[in-house]
Structures are given as C-alpha cells and as structure tokens.
C-alpha cells in the first residue's frame, strides 16, 4: 500500500487476501467434486450423510448424533440446528406427518423422534437447553456481567431464544460451558426417549406447534397429557443441577475480573468531584 493510506483502509485490503484464498480453495473443491460420481457437494452430503441417517431414521442413535452435532456447532458460533436440520429436518418432518395421519384416524402413533420431540423435549430455552442456565444466572450468580445478562435473557429464553447467552456469556469457544451445553440436551434426549419408550408419556401427536411455544404448555399441547408438562419441568430442574457447578466456576472467574477491573478503573479515572471553579 502507498504511504499515507489510513490504517483502516489498509486493513480492509489485508482482509481481501484470506478471503481470496478461501474462495480459491472452495472453487477448487467444487471443480474436484465435478470429477466424482456425486457431481457436487450437495449430492455428496445427501448420499453420504443424509441417506444413511434416513435409513437409521427413527432411532435414539440418530437422535443423539443430531443433538450432539447441533451443540458442537453452536460451540463454534454456528447456528447448530440450521446446519443439522438440512439433513435431519426432512426425516423429523416425515415422521411427524406419519404421526399426525395416524392421530387423525385414531390409530396408535408410530414414532417417537418427531419434529415435536426435537422442539419440545430435547432443549428448553434454545440450543444447549439454556433455560436452566438462565434461571441459575438470575438466581445464584453474583457477578454483574452474568446477572445482567441473565435478566436480559430470561424472557427470550422462555420462548426458546438464547443468542444473548450463546454470544454474550459466551458459550462460543468457552471451554467451561461446553460440557453442560452438550451434556444437558443429551440427557434430555435420553431421558425423554426412555419416558416415551416405557409408555410413561404418550407419543407426540405430530401437530406442528411453533418451536417457540414455552415449556409446560408445549408438552401438554403435543401429547395431550399433563404428565408431559410435568416431565418437561423435571428435565428443566435436572438441567439446573448439571449447569450449576459450571456456571458457578465461570461466575467466580468473572467476579475476580470485575473486582480487578474496578480497582484499575479508579486509578485511571480523573475525578471532577474536588474541582473548584474558583481555582481559576
């Protein structure tokens, strides 16, 4: 860059180089795919990933892979379900449709792992089942950062929105929170699966309820049983137990940061309190 170019302009040009490399690499990958029998990356994903998963379809194993991948993607800052649903959504939806058809004809419901199972029994308050986490943030945490964020996130959390926590706490690339963030949805999926398999809960009727429907209501609406609502609340409480040690650790770290920040700020601040204009 010639001399006198402002740093911000220079930096934007510097960013062009990595993006050009990325584009080149993916262009080459694209061309390479054309030489394979799959012809493009989409067909490759379909044939290698989606088709086998559809085959195992209605099973706990497939569901665990789905939940696991969704959480892991979130950990890297990628909207997990947006990615996994490209593969899984057709499967979940078709199982829902089969259930709703059976429900309308008064037959026994065939499938457990429907879209409703995904939306209403795997996670509460968004990916990672963070509604449990928000409750802890508001009730037991002491650092200002976590408390304030908890208050902000509580209402969206009830409706399944948790981006403030994912990026604000943050969950993204946070080695402490990754364990419960992956663990709680897995626990929910396995326990719900057991509850349905043992007949404790009636299968979901396949009615397509918005995924934002709050916990408690949603369980009742998709199964017609009040037991499902209570079961959801039990899972929520269990989630709190799992999240507790981890958020407390994070809380302690943030408290330490906050107290050291405060002392630093005081020394740097210039106080106008003792300034008298008569000094002039």
């Amino acid at each position: 860059m010639p001399k006198g170019v402002p740093p911000s302009v220079f930096n934007s040009f510097a960013a062009l180089i990595p993006s050009a490399i990325v584009m080149l690499i993916f262009f080459i990958i694209r061309i390479l795919f054309e030489f394979t029998p799959y012809e493009n990356a989409f067909d490759f994903v379909y044939k290698v990933l989606q088709a086998p998963l559809m085959a195992v379809g209605d099973s706990l194993g497939a569901e665990i892979i789905y939940v696991l991948l969704s959480s892991v993607f979130w950990f890297f800052g990628i909207n997990g379900p947006s990615v996994t649903n490209t593969v899984y959504s057709p499967m979940h939806m078709s199982l829902s449709v089969e259930n709703v058809k059976a429900f309308q004809q008064g037959l026994s419901l065939p499938h457990i792992y429907t879209q409703q199972f995904v939306d209403m029994f795997e996670t509460f308050g968004g990916g990672g089942s963070t509604l449990s986490l928000v409750i802890l943030m508001v009730t037991v945490c002491k650092s200002q950062r976590i408390k304030q964020l908890g208050k902000l996130s509580l209402v969206p959390g009830i409706f399944g929105i948790n981006e403030p926590i994912i990026f604000g706490l943050p969950i993204v690339l946070n080695p402490i929170m990754i364990i419960p963030f992956i663990g709680v949805p897995l626990m929910n999926t396995i326990l719900s699966s057991i509850a349905f398999k043992t007949g404790f809960l009636p299968y979901t009727n396949g009615v397509n309820l918005p995924w934002t429907t709050p916990i408690g209501f949603s369980g009742f609406l998709v199964t017609g049983s009040i037991k499902a609502s209570i079961f959801q609340l039990i899972l929520l409480a269990l989630g709190c137990l799992v999240y507790y040690p981890f958020i407390k650790t994070l809380d302690k770290n943030y408290l330490k940061d906050e107290s050291s920040e405060n002392t630093k700020d005081e020394s740097e601040d210039i106080s106008f309190d003792d300034i008298s204009i008569d000094d002039l």
């Binding site: 210039i270 106008f272 300034i275 008298s276 204009i277 000094d279 002039l280």
Partner: peptide
C-alpha cells in the same frame, strides 16, 4: 497525559459549568 470528555448533549445543558470545570482541571493537570 490525559483526556477530558463530555457528551455533546450534556454539554448543551451545562455549558458554563463544563467549560469552567474543564479549565480548572487543565490547570490542575
């Protein structure tokens, strides 16, 4: 060595006070 600052809205409301205090602070620093 230091930066003094004031929001332009706050300044509009407290013009005289801010000007005098900034001058006094400059003298002190």
């Amino acid at each position: 060595i230091a930066c003094l600052y004031c929001g332009d809205g706050y300044f509009k409301e407290h013009e005289e006070e801010v000007v005098k205090k900034m001058a006094a602070m400059a003298k002190k620093l």
